[in-house]
Design a protein around this nucleic acid. Sequence first.
DNA 1: CGCATAATCTGGTATATACCAGATTGGAGA
DNA 2: TCTCCAATCTGGTATATACCAGATTATGCG
Lengths: 240, 240
Amino acid sequence: MSRTDYPVYLQLRDRLWDWIETEELSSQQRLPSERELSERFHTTRVTIRQALSQLEAEGLIFRSNRRGWYITPERLRYDPSRDVGFNRYVTEQGFHPRTETLFKQLTEVPPWLSEISGLEVGTPIYHVFRRRYVDERGLLVEHNYINPAHCPGLLSESTDMSIWQMLREKYDLRPEHRDIEIYPLALKGLEAESLNVNQGAAGLYIQRLSFDQRGDFLELDREYWLHDALKIAVRIGDRH
Amino acid sequence: MSRTDYPVYLQLRDRLWDWIETEELSSQQRLPSERELSERFHTTRVTIRQALSQLEAEGLIFRSNRRGWYITPERLRYDPSRDVGFNRYVTEQGFHPRTETLFKQLTEVPPWLSEISGLEVGTPIYHVFRRRYVDERGLLVEHNYINPAHCPGLLSESTDMSIWQMLREKYDLRPEHRDIEIYPLALKGLEAESLNVNQGAAGLYIQRLSFDQRGDFLELDREYWLHDALKIAVRIGDRH
DNA sequence: CGCATAATCTGGTATATACCAGATTGGAGA
DNA sequence: TCTCCAATCTGGTATATACCAGATTATGCG
């Protein structure tokens, strides 16, 4: 018999968890449909959905638009303090990266960017919007705002590789210091659509604001990650 | 007329957002009950709850057990790379901190801790479990595992203040380097209960593993934060 | 065989309704 | 005035049902 003080949807969560374990479903594998699961576990679709949402919040499964529920791959380890490009550290961990440039343009510094960068409103600025995949699952979208004063002609280059690598090799630019902000948020609007998730899906926001040796603004990076896609790992104070 | 391709619950989200703005509801203030809101906006409680959950995910409002919905206070800024105690940086930002020690004990190193700390399984270890408040809202719970070899008698001290301050002042201990891990997760079990949130509520996990100059394990800190409670802000590479 | 289109399957949204359990409130009694 | 307990209010859980829209699959025509 089941504990009466334990809601059905949490019991279902446990049974689904066990079921997934015993079936040894692997990364990116699809679950049966909600209707089928609700029959198999003798409950309604509404309640099954509560249980599935619970497992989604825990990061065990994820939903893909209207196609079904899938097993979540392992989290990607990520160190935002390093200068290593996306492609390299994804490959290092045995996954397959891919980057899509959704748009790139030369535009003008808006007020909010002026405030944190020190550039004047209306100054020219590069804006690149990209989507990044790991093993064909879109994990994040990324806005890059780059100071064209230091790297004229950047936009005519391919932006499907590491921007930082390009800045370093072609323009000899590297950041002297940077301000990093990280916090959980809900994915909305353009970011939710680009990642093919529902409005309000859980995400993680990472912002990097980079300056060069003279204190000039180099680049702003705003990343919107799926909540279950990454694990930030940083080592601090090791000077060997 | 409303756009037909825009779900009712998202329209409600927008109207609730506007309503909260115009009413100028302030931090920690209570919303009307779900039943009242569903009448006022001519819909059912189920749909209103979807809209409220959306705003909750976005961090505008939060729920308190079975008491109602409240306006979320501003995020606390937090730098896990600094040695500053909780009380100090909360106060610096104009809030009122409070810490509760839920238990403290001398126990033995379990296998998982042995693996990351280098200590042998079964070695004595201090374990402190605390809950931290800002303006009387519980924002996080925290497990501290401290190596008693370096600070005998620590548990007889009060643990409602900064453990790091105590380690520094009484035992002259400070970390040489540390490994930090951060990722979103669902709050479950003890952590969810202690923070008075539902099983599976969105949270942020922060782990700090600290070693001294000789590379000996000093302390492990595992923090479970509410998803809407903090903004991590770190400056890297500024050596002035 | 290739391609457009129709049927079907999927999760997403919405309404109506009911009962439960914890939290709060109000009132009766000491 | 204080304490306790019952009434009431809150969000939490659960079932049944329906229709929608995007994604996938099957079909049948050229």
